[in-house]
Simulated scan of single mutants.
Amino acid sequence: MVNAIEAKGIVKIFDGFRAVDGVDLIVPKGSIFGILGPNGAGKTTLLRTLLGIIDPDEGSRKLFGASRPLTQSARVGYLPEERGLYQSMRAVDTIAFMGALRGLPLTTGRKRGRELLEEAGLGYAADRQIRQLSKGMAQTVQLMGTIVHEPELIILDEPFSGLDALNQAKLEKMIRAQAERGVTVIFSTHVIAHAERLCERIAIIAGGKISFDGLVQEARDRLRPQVHLETANLDGPWRSALPQNCEPEGHWWHFTLPESGVEPLLTALVEGKAGIKSLSIERPGLHDAFVAIAGEAVAAQMDEMVDETELQTLSAGAKL
């Protein structure tokens, strides 16, 4: 089966700076694929290179098996990070215009545009000018223009940036709906939670290099589950089933699940009369996996970016 995207050894240099540095990447058809990393990591440059908007200085890439990606542009919907719409154009005409750029007849684009707006609960805004819409509504219109020609591949560069929680949820719903149609969706983000909720596969990028490419489950499986145990007793033969350096906090014990698994642990606790009062096993989240893969410094940078985004969202909401 031909993959949606294949890249090998991609390098892109600007003024001596390697914005993308030897990237290998495969995106299977029909997947939701997240490119996760902080600002300046190389996400946008990588996406533009994969699409053929810019050429790599080294390496090769294929889009639907074609070594010249621009020949496949009619099969692609691309939402760049920089938003830009004609302010005097009506919402429905904006959607139709963007579809026409991909070869969709204007009449078909207007019809589909109204349908998309109705499905999103924005049918009332179809004939309003872009300048009359809120920022979230305008971004939704631009997203609809990205998908109106029914592409096989949708690429979204930081699509959640600047959206409030309600519009973020709507966008997630639209992404899932496209994936259910069999469309391949790639989006870049610095918000780990979006990738964890939506993606089957991710690539983690920092400093132009990809440190992980695979299933979200595989990233999380790099870390063992954590056990949270409360016992009535604090000593007994069952203590040998716990890690040697494990010390209680009151009657609570917190430790990494042994490689032997949970069943031997439970047997030792029961037979050794630990007096189990509470036991939970917590699988590591994608954030924990990201820290382990990319490092604490990159993770801290990502967390700071999320905080700034949340402050901007709250500020924008206060002005409405």
Rank of each mutant, 00 (worst) to 15 (best):
R102Y: 04
K62V: 08
G236S: 10
H251K: 12
E152G: 10
L320T: 12
L104H: 04
V2N: 03
K43Y: 02
E172T: 12
M98Q: 09
N233A: 13
D164A: 01
P28I: 08
S31N: 12
M174P: 06
L215H: 12
G109K: 02
H149Q: 06
G250S: 00
S67G: 14
L223H: 07
I175Y: 05
I32H: 06
A292H: 13
V306M: 03
G208E: 10
R283V: 12
E158T: 10
R83L: 03
A100R: 07
M137H: 12
R90V: 11
I13H: 02
A289F: 05
S211N: 13
I26G: 03
K319R: 14
Q139P: 10
V227Q: 00
T44C: 11
F14D: 02
P248K: 05
V185R: 00
T107G: 09
E115D: 13
P159Q: 04
G77I: 06
L198R: 02
G99T: 00
L163Y: 01
E230Q: 15
F17W: 13
M137G: 04
A91F: 08
T313D: 12
L51N: 06
Q244R: 15
L153N: 09
N39I: 09
R283T: 13
P264C: 00
V185E: 00
R68E: 15
E247R: 14
G250H: 02
E180Y: 02
E308R: 15
I26R: 13
A19V: 03
Q244M: 10
G214F: 01
K209V: 14
I210M: 14
L320I: 12
D21C: 05
L166S: 12
G145Q: 02
L51Y: 10
E230H: 14
